[in-house]
Amino acid sequence: MEPSELITEIKKGNEQVLCEFYAKYRNNFLSYAIKRYNLNIEILKEVYQDAILAIRNNIVNERLCVFTCHPRTYLFEVCNHLIGKELRKNKREVPFPEHLEYTCADDNENIHSKMEISERQEIIRQEMKKLGDKCFQLLYLFYFEKKRMEEIAEILHYRNVDSAKSSKHNCMQRLKENILEKRSHFNLQ
């Protein structure tokens, strides 16, 4: 698949293409990183997943519109950045390429998909999973896939856009109520 096609498909939300991209270089990356960094394989697997998600987020948020190098090279570079962060977290003294040192700053949000998660966000994360399939898909498509309501109405077979919009508001309302209920229960602020 051409790199431009890869970007188009990932932007469209084609999860199969994303999974294929993930599978294609996973073992290459693990073999290379094990040899080079001597990190635990479970950490490297997580790093690799984070890198794939970071690339996907950059594409969907239009921060990555074209690959200026081979997608594999881009992927490995993102992995190297994330490994740099991991090594810094563990204060590991291992040789690390100079040119990557500059780009491992924690404020580099374009690369790092992980952020500080507040207690309230963590509760929302769990409550979101209890919302039911239809609501989950609707909010997933709107906020994560960044699809327009017209597209969502078509994908989820709503009668029309207004009907999809109304459902979205109901889902948000339900989610909000569940959170406020939890918050009063645990007296969270």
């Binding site: 999973k129 997933y140 906020y143």
Partner: peptide, 30 residues
Amino acid sequence: DLVAGIKLASEDHLRQKLMDTDNTILPVKT
């Protein structure tokens, strides 16, 4: 916060799909 929580849950969903893909790939000998 709602939007951030929705994104986190969505990432979990996608991460699970990637993990399911792991089962279809030959393991790396380590």
